[in-house]
């Protein structure tokens, strides 16, 4: 199956902001990260996305928050992004 992967910053140094990945049927987010790491070894995707085997960024699957074990389906859009909370300097 094929999923679309997007990085909503700060993954500026990943090879592209959007990429397509082919995965085994039933693969979950963890499997996707493993695959990303293989595809871009020099970019250290694993270190950027995980810490101590846990996600360190948010993952949205078709715009809904997911986790490491969320199963992916063909055509899914997976977005990795920082937790964007609140804030502004125009206080």
């Amino acid at each position: 199956m094929r999923v679309k992967v997007k990085f909503l910053l700060p993954f500026d140094d990943m090879s592209s902001k959007e990429t397509v990945m082919d995965l085994e049927k039933g693969a979950d987010v963890r499997a996707l990260i493993e695959k990303l790491s293989c595809k871009f070894p020099e970019k250290e995707a694993k270190n950027k996305l995980m810490i101590d085997e846990e996600l360190k960024v948010m993952v949205l699957i078709n715009k809904r928050p997911g986790n490491m074990k969320t199963e992916l389906a063909h055509g899914d859009e997976v977005v990795f992004c920082p937790v964007f909370s609140g804030g502004n300097c125009h206080d």
């Binding site: 909503l8 910053l9 700060p10 500026d12 360190k56 960024v57 949205l60 715009k63 977005v79 992004c81 920082p82 937790v83 964007f84 909370s85 804030g87 502004n88 300097c89």
Partner: peptide, 23 residues
């Protein structure tokens, strides 16, 4: 820290894409 890296790169304006993406 990812959020801080975002701030360092383009500041709080990064929020527009995320906020819009997630409705």
């Amino acid at each position: 820290f990812d959020y801080t890296r975002v701030l360092r790169e383009i500041g709080t304006s990064a929020g527009i894409s995320f906020q819009n993406y997630s409705g």
